[in-house]
Computed example of a mutant assay.
Amino acid sequence: MTRILGVDPGSQRTGVGIIDTDAAGRTVHVFHATVKLLDNDSFMLRLKQLFEDLGAIIETYRPDEVAIERVFMAKNPDSALKLGQARGAALCAVVTRNLVVAEYAPKEVKQAVVGGGAADKTQIQHMVGVLLQLPGKLQADAADALAIALTHAHTRATTQRIGIPRTAWRRRR
């Protein structure tokens, strides 16, 4: 079994989801949460909390690999910058623990989990719940993090079966 940590970075809330997967791509839910950052007095303290809380989750659950959402270009440059900084804090928490990181675009995650690159949050929440057999409605950020982990598990299983690295079959932009 391989333990995968999925991270959906955000400057207000960061979703975290952990699954275990076997060589065939079968997955089991381990943990999910939303790291809420808005109680801090400053943006810098949000980044510090994200780094520390994600580090604590990594120490507790000991993932083997990490999948994180790639930053998309937002309409608001300030929001995009803050998202990038939150993503950087999350990546620092991961790489300081020598974990392998895979990045996925939002459309790749939607395609892998829902079957279409234009899926909305409720579709992702529903499909993640179905795929991991979780009761009740998931919080959106946690569902996104689990979706990222599922995407990595499926991609990983496929690349192992066909023996071609992911970079060779990804569409060039």
Results as ranks from 00 to 15, higher is better:
L54Q: 02
V35G: 04
R70M: 07
E69F: 07
I57P: 01
K48C: 00
V66D: 05
V28L: 14
Y61I: 02
F51E: 07
L45V: 02
G55N: 10
V66F: 05
S42L: 10
M73T: 11
R46L: 10
H29R: 08
R70C: 03
P63A: 11
F43S: 15
V66T: 07
H29G: 15
V35T: 10
R70Q: 13
A33W: 02
E69C: 05
H32A: 12
T60M: 11
I68Q: 10
K48A: 05
T60S: 12
G55H: 02
T34H: 02
L38S: 10
V66K: 04
D39R: 05
L38H: 09
K48L: 03
I57G: 07
I58L: 06
P63H: 05
I58H: 03
M73N: 14
R46G: 02
K48D: 04
D64E: 13
F72W: 09
R46Y: 05
I68E: 12
E65P: 02
F51S: 08
K36P: 04
V30W: 07
F31V: 05
F72N: 14
H32E: 12
R70G: 08
A33Q: 13
E69L: 02
I57K: 03
V30D: 14
M44Q: 14
K36A: 11
V30T: 12
H32V: 00
A74C: 07
D64Y: 09
A74F: 03
D41P: 09
T60C: 06
S42R: 12
A67R: 03
L45Y: 08
F31M: 09
L38F: 02
L37V: 01
I68F: 04
D53P: 00
D64G: 15
F31G: 05
G55M: 08
F43T: 13
Q49H: 13
K75R: 12
K75G: 12
A33G: 11
I57F: 07
V71Q: 14
F43Y: 14
H29D: 15
A67E: 04
R70E: 15
L45C: 11
A67K: 03
L50Q: 01
I57M: 08
D39W: 02
F72G: 14
L47V: 03
E65V: 08
M73A: 15
L38Q: 13
Q49L: 12
V30N: 10
E69R: 00
A56M: 10
N40F: 00
R46I: 06
L50K: 01
A67G: 12
H32S: 15
R62S: 15
F72I: 09
M73H: 13
F31D: 05
T60Y: 04
M73R: 12
V28H: 14
L38M: 06
F51P: 00
F51I: 01
I57R: 04
E69S: 05
D39L: 03
